[in-house]
Design a binder for these strands. Sequence first.
DNA 1: AATATATATCGTTAACTTTCGATATGCAAC
DNA 2: GTTGCATATCGAAAGTTAACGATATATATT
Lengths: 101, 101
Amino acid sequence: MSSAELDDMIKALSHPVRREILNWLKQPEVYFADQEHSLSFGVCAGKIDQKTGLSQSTVSAHLATLQRAGFISSKKVGQWNFFSRNEEVIQQFLARLNDQL
Amino acid sequence: MSSAELDDMIKALSHPVRREILNWLKQPEVYFADQEHSLSFGVCAGKIDQKTGLSQSTVSAHLATLQRAGFISSKKVGQWNFFSRNEEVIQQFLARLNDQL
DNA sequence: AATATATATCGTTAACTTTCGATATGCAAC
DNA sequence: GTTGCATATCGAAAGTTAACGATATATATT
């Protein structure tokens, strides 16, 4: 993980809504129990929009930021886009921070 | 550590110069070997100004940000202000992040 | 093909952050 | 008490980020 990548990651975490989203994705079955689709591909963008209370375009940008940082991935299925955490990346990030901070 | 405090801490880390300063303070004897004063009280603000290459006022603001977040403390001795890391706070922060991320 | 739904992208505005130089404050030395 | 040095604070300019509504794209349904 380069220094620039680390920078992107920390910046991605520096917004409370993005941290909250990451947290929700940790336990989709708790926070998105109402999702019609199976949670196995992840959580549907629209469900996240609802939960934040922010506009659709704003949340789309937050998800893009988290994805650019590597913390989440998306899987497109039909017209939907499902998001889920990249646990290994998150662990790498924490390890790196533990080390370099 | 409250959620607002965590927020301040992550924001404090979200600038590369502030992370760099934290890193320098980890090994003052390596990065500030030229300091005339003993390093036992910490590193003198002016030395940090020099090393960053940024203006005195800018660095003063960065140091204030790190201090508000709790990552560093300062000790005033005469006309000088010496800064040093708060290792316990940093460890608490890392533990919290490990947990909540 | 037309319509509907989900999501991304665009353009704008508002808010926040970083930087600087200038000034203020506080201490020391003369 | 005036001068000099270290640092903090102030005010302005520039850069970055966040938010929104509108629009574009892609898929699904009729």
